[in-house]
Nucleic acid binder design. Structure first.
Length: 937
RNA sequence: GGGCAAGUGGCGAAAUGGCAGACGCGCAGGCUUCAGGAGCCUGUGAUCGCAAGAUCGUGAGGGUUCAAAUCCCUCCUUGCCCACCA
């Protein structure tokens, strides 16, 4: 009988669907397991092979968990708001809701045909008004608690289209559509105060089982840094400049200040600045700078000095110049820095360009001693290696380095151990000496604090890449960025910079301050195809809030107090449904397309009954995906479409947190951070019981097209999973994607690669239909191998080492073929471990074997995951490697657990070993039980 | 410029201190077949050798170790993410 995957796959997909075996039950005696994959944006192109990779992996996990007796929730949905649907609508005038519906249907069909065990009854769709009603309601919570506020933020602005652009629409600083120039333009927008949660989002990571690189990217994005705020007075003025620095210990080396071009001090000091015209011009120029220009000017720092004014360094009391430059950002820290060119790379570059004083205030704590290997006798090298941290720097001159503060001892040792080459040893530490053994046989010691002598020493042939500042002469060539010993620092001189960092700050009336790179989340988009922001603006209420201040009788929420005039649409009027429009294009003046819906905009103010205008901006894509996992737990569309209360904390408590979340590496910063932020906030609002939504998070590697490049329509290298599965079957496609390579690494799609897994399935089919019979009893060797494979596959799935799991099953079927027959018992175990990977073929073959069916259990996917017998995993005998001096001279097969003595006798009698040892004395024997024996001669 | 990965046969890769190249693709040969982009079997890192076997071999160089693809140092290359974050 031929392996007819088309017939088999369709048949079982229908049967499973009929029996509803993947439906998750709220509450159960079984332990729950929530397996989550990122829900896709249903594009017109259909499913991508990258989706298939992620879904197959988690499908395997979900199926295995069910077999292990868990109550599993493995849901799917549509993250359907987005730019492509909107752009398509602009082009064709077809409503995005319609295209979305068609695309989603196609996605569902494709996913079903691949046999994923999703619980389709819980499907969610972010563009469903019944869904985004809750997205809006949750947003209003942020608003009511004062976590949403209006502020000016930059948007990408196309000068020729006169519209705001999404980041995706800006390509190399130009508009994707018309190729016009893109600049930044300020616009008032809604912001979410994610920075309030910066600390929680950082601390919360600690106990989570995320891949380390994912944690790192979250940590870096939050970017916590601890610094000091310090005041610099301005000479002849009452104004002060506050600077933020992480290195207050270097303040004695602060030789100038730099302000961001937007800094208020500039206008405050207008009358005292003699070159104000020049300053104004610079400010104007930088404000016009596009992203592109800034990239170009990366290397070359620009700036202008504020002439006529000076700041006073609070540590040295010296007058220092003030500059403005766009390398200082207005919206980080205080928008002003103290520049320490000797110890900061950017300040160093700037100082060199403008010829400013560079003052060194920190130096290396230990001595760093360099020498040339050729200069010293073996005895010196071996002695030094024993006592100190010796590193061979592997320059052509064989330079080594020792980091130590025992310079004197090392020099003492060196004196007596010269070769007769010219010898070199130098140090930049406490003992500033150079030992030198000249060609004429003379030993000389130079004190290098004496610049002249040291220069002479150099002429003897000492220059082997010595950095000049180590020698204590000449200019500083590069800044020293690390901690070390303070110099030129008043009372703190000779103390350690790391220990005195805060003391120095406090002594100058500074205070500690924690800053984050993380900025508040710009939550407005000037777009049609997103959730309307459920707020309205009312002039009367604005005046009321402002004039009454905080009047408790008026019942103003925090958000309404924070944003005078802005009032929430009441819950009973949600959802605020997107009005249908004729034109979807963003407005010419930077307004959202919704501003064109004249009938929709004007409403009765929910607060005072007057005239109010709706917010016309919509929410960003990230909104709907910030809580979709909660919607699944709450029952999905069936639940949110039903009247009555959708939010059910008992269900959330049961299912959350997500036990395992897998998705793309491209979403491990923003989406992950945003959804953790929402969940943390909902926890504070007592709407959920865990601050952290995801217990474990992993990521798959990209699947690339030919030549290792990203798959894209324009390159014509997109692989359609439908085409592959109609030729080789869903099981073969699933297996191939798991077999391709390490799950978390980027992999290149190779058409011919699928043949291996396909042939494997054919072999499984042929063996199962022809060579398994009830008359055969368990073969001993095969029992052992089946056991080992169960263990291997069980472990590998947990590690996401799917490629080696598949290969171990290939090895197993190859061994079955070698024996030419197999017992039903072992065959069933094999089918069970293969079932999560290839659900259809295993179901068909399972049904063909003589199995007991019960009312409850009809399918292989309802059976229990096979256990392995630890005693049967290994063989009774084991191959031991025999080495002589680390080289392999043979192997020997012995009983497991054999002792060193016994093995030694046996091994030394072997011809090959005798020959290798050649009668020499055995100095040492290394014996690793059941692994290896190594004779050192 | 910064951060994070990764470099192993003709190719995808395995081995995370203990027999480098499992498993698969491709290739070569054999069996079977009217036929095959089918199935089964055998071989397949390089060099030398009829063979047994020997030597070399995991981006380059060095170090630690009885033993290194694996750990440490320096450098090179590629990919991804981020752009002056004090």
């Amino acid at each position: 009988m031929k392996y007819d995957f088309k017939k088999i796959e369709g048949k079982w997909q229908k049967e499973w669907e009929k029996a509803q075996i993947y439906k998750a039950k709220d509450f159960s005696n079984k332990k729950k397991y929530f397996a989550l994959v990122e829900f896709p944006y249903p594009s017109a192109d259909g499913l991508h092979v990258g989706h298939v990779e992620s879904y197959t992996a988690m499908d395997i996990v979900a199926r295995k968990r069910r077999m292990e007796g868990y109550n599993v929730l493995f849901p799917m949905g549509w993250d359907a708001f987005g730019l492509p649907a909107e752009n398509y609508a602009i082009k064709t005038n077809i409503h995005p809701a319609k295209t979305t519906r068609i695309n989603a249907k196609n996605y569902e069909k494709q996913m079903r045909s691949l046999g994923f065990s999703f619980d389709w009854s819980r499907l969610v769709d972010t563009t469903d008004p019944d869904y985004y009603k809750w997205t809006q309601q949750l947003f209003l919570r942020f608003f009511e608690k004062g976590l949403a506020y209006r502020a000016k933020a930059n948007v990408n602005w196309c000068l020729s289209c006169k519209t705001a652009l999404a980041n995706e629409e800006v390509v190399n600083g130009r508009c994707e559509r018309c190729g016009g120039e893109v600049t930044q333009r300020e616009k008032e927008q809604w912001m979410l105060k994610i920075t309030n949660y910066a600390d929680k989002l950082l601390a919360g990571l600690k106990d989570l089982d995320f891949l380390q690189e994912i944690k790192t990217s979250q940590i870096n994005w939050i970017g916590k840094s601890e610094g000091a705020l310090l005041d610099f007075s301005i000479s002849n003025s009452d104004f002060k400049v506050k600077v933020f620095t992480t290195r207050p210990d270097t303040i004695f080396g602060a030789t100038y200040l730099v302000l961001a071009p937007e800094h208020v001090l500039i206008s405050n000091l207008k009358n005292q600045i003699s070159n104000f015209g020049e300053i104004e011009e610079y400010v104007l120029r930088t404000s016009k700078k596009t992203e592109e220009d800034r990239l170009k000017s990366d290397k070359d720092k620009t700036g202008v000095e504020l002439r006529g004014v000076f700041a006073i360094n609070p540590a040295t009391k010296e007058n220092i110049p003030i500059f403005i430059s766009d390398y200082v950002l207005a919206n980080y820290g205080t928008g002003a820095i103290m520049a320490v060119p000797a110890h900061d790379e950017r300040d160093f570059k700037f100082a060199n360009k403008f010829n400013l004083q560079i003052k060194k205030v920190v130096e290396f704590k230990d001595a760093r001693i360099f020498g040339s290997l050729k200069s010293f006798k073996e005895s010196f090298i071996s002695e030094v290696k024993k006592k100190w941290n010796f590193r061979d720097l592997n320059n052509k001159e064989d330079i080594f380095e020792i980091v130590s503060n025992e310079v004197k001892d090392i020099f003492e040792l060196a004196k007596n151990n010269f070769n007769d080459h010219s010898a070199v040893l130098w140090s930049d530490g406490d003992v500033k000496q150079i030992l030198f053994h000249s060609d004429s046989g003379e030993n000389k010691i130079f004190d290098w604090s004496d610049g002249e002598l040291a220069k002479n020493a150099r002429n003897y042939g000492l220059m082997l890449g010595i950095k000049q500042e180590f020698m204590g002469w000449g200019n500083i060539l590069e800044p020293y960025l690390e901690d070390g010993k303070l110099i030129n620092s008043g009372e703190f001189t000779d103390l350690l910079s790391s220990e005195k960092r805060w003391e120095i700050a406090y002594s100058l009336n500074g205070r500690k301050e924690i800053k984050y790179k993380l900025r508040d989340w710009v939550f407005s988009r000037q777009r049609y195809w997103g959730e309307p922001i459920p707020l309205a603006y009312c002039d009367v209420c604005s005046a009321n809030v402002k004039s009454f201040g905080i009047d408790p009788k008026k019942n103003w929420s925090e958000g309404e107090k924070l944003n005078p005039g802005w009032v929430a649409i009441p819950e009973k009027n949600l959802p605020v449904v997107l009005p249908s429009l004729k034109k979807f294009k963003p407005g010419e003046d930077g307004e959202s397309p919704l501003a064109e819906a004249k009938n929709w905009i004007w409403i009765k103010c929910p607060k005072c009954g007057g005239k109010a205008r709706r917010e016309t901006d919509t929410m960003p894509n990230w909104a709907g995906s910030s809580w979709y996992f909660l919607a699944y737990a709450l029952g999905g569309s069936l639940a949110y479409k039903k009247k009555g209360s959708f939010w059910n904390k008992k269900k959330l408590d049961y299912w959350l947190p997500v036990d395992w979340y897998n998705g793309g590496m491209e979403h491990v910063t923003l989406h992950l951070l945003y959804s953790r932020f929402w969940n943390n906030f909902l926890f504070d609002e007592k709407l959920v019981s865990n601050p952290e939504p995801f217990q474990k998070r992993t990521a798959q590697g990209l699947i690339l097209g030919k030549g290792g490049v990203k798959m894209s329509k324009s390159k014509g290298n997109v692989v359609n999973p439908d085409v592959v599965s109609s030729e080789f079957g869903a099981d073969a496609l699933r297996l191939y994607e798991m077999f391709m390579g390490p799950f978390n690494q980027a992999k290149v799609w190779e058409v011919s690669g699928i043949l291996g897994p396909y042939r494997f399935l054919e072999r499984v089919w042929n063996f199962g239909t022809e060579m398994v019979s009830s008359g055969v009893s368990d073969d001993k060797e095969l029992s052992v191998l089946v056991n080992a494979t169960i263990k291997k596959v069980s472990d590998d799935v947990e590690k996401m080492a799917f490629n080696t799991a598949v290969s171990s099953m290939m090895i197993l079927i190859n061994s079955f073929y070698e024996k030419k027959e197999l017992s039903v018992n072992l065959w069933k175990k094999f089918l069970l471990i293969l079932a999560p990977f290839a659900p259809h073929i295993t179901e068909e073959l399972w049904q063909k074997t003589s199995i007991k069916k019960s009312k409850k259990i009809k399918f292989i996917h309802q059976e229990a995951w096979p256990e392995y017998d630890e005693k049967l995993v290994g063989d009774k005998t084991v191959e031991i490697v025999i080495q002589v001096n680390g080289k392999i001279r043979g192997t020997i097969s012995v009983d497991i657990g054999v002792s060193e003595e016994k093995l030694k006798k046996q091994v030394l009698d072997l011809e090959g070993v005798k020959k290798a040892i050649d009668g020499k004395e055995i100095k040492k024997v290394i014996f690793i039980k059941d692994r290896l024996i190594n004779f050192v001669i």
